[in-house]
């Protein structure tokens, strides 16, 4: 019992650290998508395709962000 109590804060800290890293990776991947997307879109198609690609990614990001916040509440 004493041992499990002693390990709880460490487990909590580890869980939080993993959650932090997971979220950071998600955010970094969004940033990478935007960076590569704006360049690749220009290679693949014309201006309309590129702007549509970036616009759709922006909307997906916002929907993701809002949904995540609502779920947390």
């Amino acid at each position: 019992m004493a041992e499990s109590l002693g390990t709880k804060p460490v487990e909590g800290a580890e869980r939080r650290r993993r959650a932090n890293v997971r979220l950071a990776f998600i955010l970094a991947s969004i940033a990478a998508t935007f960076f590569a997307g704006v360049i690749v879109a220009r290679y693949v198609g014309g201006m309309e395709f590129g702007m549509s690609f970036v616009g759709v990614v922006a909307l997906v990001l916002l929907v993701f962000a809002i949904a995540r916040n609502l779920r947390d509440k």
Partner: peptide, 10 residues
């Protein structure tokens, strides 16, 4: 996070 990579891409 949404727009800085776009500037970097540009």
């Amino acid at each position: 996070i949404a727009v800085m990579p776009v500037l970097a891409g540009a």
